[in-house]
Design a binder for these strands. Sequence first.
DNA 1: CGTGTAAGGAATTCTGACACG
DNA 2: CGTGTAAGGAATTCTGACACG
Lengths: 102, 102
Amino acid sequence: MSSYKDKKVISIGIVSDLTGLSLRKIRYYEERGLLSPGRTEKGGRKYSFSDVETLMKIAERREEGVQTAEIKKELVKDISRQKVRDEMIKGQLNAQFGLRKR
Amino acid sequence: MSSYKDKKVISIGIVSDLTGLSLRKIRYYEERGLLSPGRTEKGGRKYSFSDVETLMKIAERREEGVQTAEIKKELVKDISRQKVRDEMIKGQLNAQFGLRKR
DNA sequence: CGTGTAAGGAATTCTGACACG
DNA sequence: CGTGTAAGGAATTCTGACACG
């Protein structure tokens, strides 16, 4: 299912470098519920590569003038599509290799 | 080729959590040349998931009493094997799908 | 609404060194 | 050789708030 891509291990400073977004923006998008990073014991935010990708999508949409509330809805849809796609790929691979008893 | 697995984005504290190794050990293995993390502008160490896996191998071998110099040699071999394996998989996939013009 | 910024404090990380063995 | 630790300093991150629009 998941893998390195979903492990929450990147601190906000690195995420800022990766995305080009300010710390303020990254925290704000979280406040608006567009993503939810993990936390270290002491309260430090930890992001996954998926989160970084989400942030890049957000940045794009924001540049187009889309408000965070709207972007939030889009992200939810993206997640559903993602799931469907994953299932299809899984099915494909299964059809190719999964049933081969040899 | 590479991907998330090889991106240097994890700080040493998280790596310590992930591997169970002390900061001291992690830095020492670097000093001995068993791995080479990236650096942020200000000098902070940044590790990849591959580095984390390498550290776990190191931890195993150390528990068996193997010295760092010896482990270092083993790691170099591992990398060669890795490359060969990657090539084989690539060849496999190519044989399965790559030539299909349909 | 979205983002910048100064504020004060807490937690992280860095390096070089001494210790023990 | 491998690892712990105390030391001093620098860089990171956190939260809540005020500002502007």
